[in-house]
Nucleic acid binder design. Structure first.
Lengths: 146, 146
DNA sequence: TTAATTAAGGACAAAAATACCTTTAATTAG
DNA sequence: CTAATTAAAGGTATTTTTGTCCTTAATTAA
């Protein structure tokens, strides 16, 4: 479904949202360990998320690390997909046809359409906070229960 | 959503289903041109589909080529995904967590579940024939209208 | 001010997916 | 039987994705 990069981005953001605050920043090492991802690659992905402070914030130096503001917790998951350039995922034709459209639909177009809508809806309506609350309740990511 | 390999497999099968019969086999060249795919790569994918006659049949030599039987047109699209080893696509956790399950769900698990079910349903209930009929009606693949 | 710590940024490496090419095998027509 | 045609099979090349490493910049604490 998603690329590794996107999976790590979503998992990292959920974890950061659960555990961080302006007072308590998380190091790359902790994040990568918690979400079971390669640290160096994860660093690259976090760079995309911190670019222009779009989702995550970062501070260098001792006691530095990554964190998210309360305000940004209300961003939809879609924002994360955009940050890692996987936003057009749900726009594409399921058969990969460039010219597939409402007027020139592929054979799966109208059956896939409502499913696509639900996927878009899922990522537009769920906020980062929504997900991190669920993760809390359901104890995923906690104690490395991956 | 799908890999290029899977897209080509689906498109090729639909095209073969529309245009071929035991009497009228289609050459690799014709298929690749019609579905707008790289011929050599398409050849590899067709090999997967013809392996053990699982979906498509092939005959070598003059007037040889690829075709599908009426019987095999009633196979579900799922069969094509299996042939190109992309069958587990809809089994995986959307966040890529190995341990995600009903009892230990990821934060998106229960929201993604019904969508996943619809995707599975789509590929299990639609047959190759269903799709090629739609393609006929909606004129995709016809006259290279890709 | 200096040393330590942490992310940023760039270059590089490995793996996987995609695409190409050449030879071989099967089949058919002459 | 021979030549032509077409897919099968294997190896190779390219591109993309994934992953690593090293140096630089920022920040903090002593």
């Amino acid at each position: 479904m998603f690329s590794k990069a996107t999976e790590y981005a979503l998992r990292a953001t959920i974890y950061i949202s659960q555990k961080s605050s302006v007072e308590k920043k998380l190091s790359l090492t902790e994040i990568a360990e918690a979400i079971d991802s390669p640290p160096s690659f994860t660093a690259k992905i976090l760079q995309l998320l911190t670019k222009d402070n779009c989702v995550i914030h970062s501070v260098r130096g001792p006691n530095g690390g990554f964190y998210i503001t309360e305000k940004d917790k209300h961003l939809p998951l879609k924002k994360i997909l955009e940050a890692v350039n996987e936003n057009d995922l749900f726009d594409k034709c399921i058969l990969g046809l460039k010219k597939c459209s409402e007027t020139k639909p592929c054979p799966l177009h109208f059956q896939y359409k409502p499913i696509k809508q639900e996927l878009i809806h899922l990522f537009q309506t769920n906020t980062i906070q929504d997900l991190s609350e669920k993760a809390d309740n359901e104890s995923l990511f906690i104690n490395n229960a991956i």
